[in-house]
Design a protein around this nucleic acid. Structure first.
Length: 297
DNA sequence: ACTACTCCCTGCCAGC
DNA sequence: TGCTGGCAGGGAGTAG
């Protein structure tokens, strides 16, 4: 469940249990996810207070005492759930009572919250494309996985002019450029498709073709910037998108999937007023792209 | 510096 | 019923 809006939703969902709390124990139930857990992973985090929860693109950052930062990525199928650490003596406090761990529950954090409640925060990831690494606060931006990331699509800084500069002369398809985390960071397959629909741009045109010429602003880049910002903002507002089996996770209470204009709508009619098109599915860079060939040009 | 492609892993589902 | 191929919200690594 991992594009920017879903990760942001996870961050907000974890905040009450985690921020200001103390990590009492960390249990890794296998030696690796996508990458091996770093040396001393559990020891480094144990008995430290969590000072803040952050996010950069699709990365979640857990900042703890002593300048240590836990970098988490959910991959394709990663999720967190929050449970009571013990059978609750005051019923009704926790949404989830303590459950049996399953095969894909890979990491269990026990946290004593600021309010004194003990919770278990469990990371589950069937496909294990997710990972957890450690870094230091002072050099977080220089971490190899974060250093090359592009601009966040969440603020006014993402302008048409900026996109123009980023995309100029690129021969890769627009869709591929949107998925390139070094240019704009946090966009994934769903929101790339959705933003291109909103801005009426074909995923097949080259990225460079929406850039401005010398001295001229680009209407297309302006439209794309506006679409990206609004679709991301609205998805965050909606708590992200919940797909397939990711319903019961705390980060997937979202309902933005009901507002998809093109994603997973192959063969259905285009939802733009007065457009007679049907949504097509093509494969670009090994992933599905959904778009309307009639109104997206 | 770009661009394109393979691979990592498990689960689910449509189609035979 | 049971198998098979295709597909899934990502991105690191490699080779041109």
């Amino acid at each position: 469940m991992p594009e920017l809006p879903e990760v942001e939703t996870v961050r907000r969902g974890l905040q009450p249990a985690l921020e200001g709390g103390r990590i009492v124990s960390v249990e890794t139930r296998r030696p690796d996810l996508r990458f091996p857990f770093p040396e001393g992973f559990a020891e480094t985090l144990t008995d430290r207070r969590v000072t803040a929860l952050g996010r950069r693109a699709k990365y979640l950052t857990v900042h703890v005492e002593g300048g240590v930062v836990l970098i988490c990525h959910l991959g394709m199928s990663g999720s967190f759930r929050i449970e009571a650490a013990e059978t609750s003596t005051t019923p009704g406090i926790f949404h989830h009572e303590r459950s049996k761990l399953t095969a894909h529950d890979h990491v269990v954090f026990t946290v004593k919250s600021r309010a004194g409640e003990a919770t278990r925060i469990i990371f589950n990831d069937p496909r294990r494309f997710g990972f957890m690494l450690l870094s230091q606060e002072a050099v977080l931006d220089q971490h190899p996985l974060l250093a090359g990331l592009g601009i966040e699509p969440t603020g006014n800084a993402l302008s048409g002019e900026l996109i123009s500069g980023l995309f100029r002369d690129r021969m890769t398809p627009l869709k591929s450029a949107l998925l390139d985390q070094r240019l704009i960071a946090g966009i994934g397959n769903i929101y790339a498709c959705e933003a291109m629909w909103w801005s009426k741009l074909s995923p097949r045109r080259t990225a460079g073709s929406i850039a401005s010429g010398p001295g001229k602003p680009s209407r297309r880049a302006d439209r794309l910037a506006e679409a990206l910002r609004s679709v991301i903002a609205e998805a965050i507002e909606a708590g992200g998108s919940s797909l397939r089996d990711h319903i019961q996770t705390d980060g997937s209470l979202g309902y933005f999937q009901h507002r998809f204009k093109v994603y997973d709508r192959e063969g259905e009619h285009c939802l733009r007023r007065e457009c007679s098109g049907a949504i097509a599915r093509i494969v670009q860079a090994g992933r599905s792209t959904f778009y309307c060939p009639v109104c997206q040009r």
